[in-house]
Design a protein around this nucleic acid. Sequence first.
DNA 1: GTGGTCTAGACCACC
DNA 2: GTGGTCTAGACCACC
Lengths: 123, 123, 123, 123
Amino acid sequence: MISIDIKSRTPIYEQLYENTRKLILEGQMTENQKLPSVRELASLLTINPNTIQKAYKQLENEGYIYVTRGRGNFVNKVNEQLIDQQAIEIQKSLCRLVEEATILGVDKKGFLEMAGRCFEEEK
Amino acid sequence: MISIDIKSRTPIYEQLYENTRKLILEGQMTENQKLPSVRELASLLTINPNTIQKAYKQLENEGYIYVTRGRGNFVNKVNEQLIDQQAIEIQKSLCRLVEEATILGVDKKGFLEMAGRCFEEEK
Amino acid sequence: MISIDIKSRTPIYEQLYENTRKLILEGQMTENQKLPSVRELASLLTINPNTIQKAYKQLENEGYIYVTRGRGNFVNKVNEQLIDQQAIEIQKSLCRLVEEATILGVDKKGFLEMAGRCFEEEK
Amino acid sequence: MISIDIKSRTPIYEQLYENTRKLILEGQMTENQKLPSVRELASLLTINPNTIQKAYKQLENEGYIYVTRGRGNFVNKVNEQLIDQQAIEIQKSLCRLVEEATILGVDKKGFLEMAGRCFEEEK
DNA sequence: GTGGTCTAGACCACC
DNA sequence: GTGGTCTAGACCACC
């Protein structure tokens, strides 16, 4: 369910963080569901447990999961506030892309077309 | 003309690379124009010459500038192929954003609105 | 396995680049094999780590190896495209040599003989 | 007659050296013919006179031209020994290419074909 | 431990 | 003066 690209430039812990975050937001992991234990996942992905720990810690810090010592890590209820915050992040990234595209000579019409293309591919 | 944020997480050499790349693509620096010398820029920004060197090297590798030893670094003719390649990169990033937004429950209409907002801000 | 000629005019980092590139293309280093760490190789060859780093970076840029921070440098799958590209480079160099030889009065027959001589020496 | 590529990586003085050498060997410049003066050529190519000087010096050292102070630089009689020496250089370069090609999996037959292709293009 | 970035400073080739 | 290479060594992120 969770896969890591060892060759990627993005740190492993970040890939892990992103992947499980996505699973939670998509509803593929639901409230109170148990995440694989640090050791379990570490040996499964042949990755250093510290790396898993770091990803879980970040998920906990941002409220995606909660930890009960001795029992494990569990999915939290999806927080509306978090979703809003992420929408803001996406908005920012989007505007950065718009800026870059503008430099290359892409205008509003062209950019919206590019965006549209992504939705077509998704189907 | 070129400014660096020493506190930023993105490496100095990369900031430099991005900034001058932008200047060239925007046409603010034109073909055969001389860039500040490695040492000159280094002392101007109080940065180590090696760091400038690294940025210039990258610009050269990607064809943005050409170097003549003993003379300096000069802006190359803008390469159409490079621009196309970058447009493709932007398209990819855009689709990645679309994917993320979709997870958060944003549909096509909503996403295009978000994109539109960026253009309004730009004005 | 990797040896450097410190007296040579060709930069150390380039010798390193060439040598390991060759090892990879020859199949003496295979996919996912770990390269010596930057520091390890540096102390082994009594060369500055930065120089090793530079060579590895170039190998990475051209797709010969991949890097994972905190783990090391690893051999990538040999890229067919890269090989083709190199064959083109050799073709170009060869034609340049032909041109030079022609100036000296060497004709096609003579040149092919010269080429043949190289293969005999190789044995 | 002599052209310089300012964007090239090979030093200007070397380009100059190579170009005039070629003219002499090809017989386009004949014995006792006067070369353009250092200053003349410098202003013609908008290049530093020192650079011209360096190229001329090298041509003189290798016996391609002779200098009479106050009068200028003149083409020498083509020296058979020099030509032989160059043939040896070409042989060396050729063998180096063969080595590289071998690594890429090109055999003797393939290499000779590549060489043949150069002659076809020349026509 | 492993790579990535950066500073300080030397020495070289080229112009 | 201009870029290119290299050493010595620091500090950081990642595993």
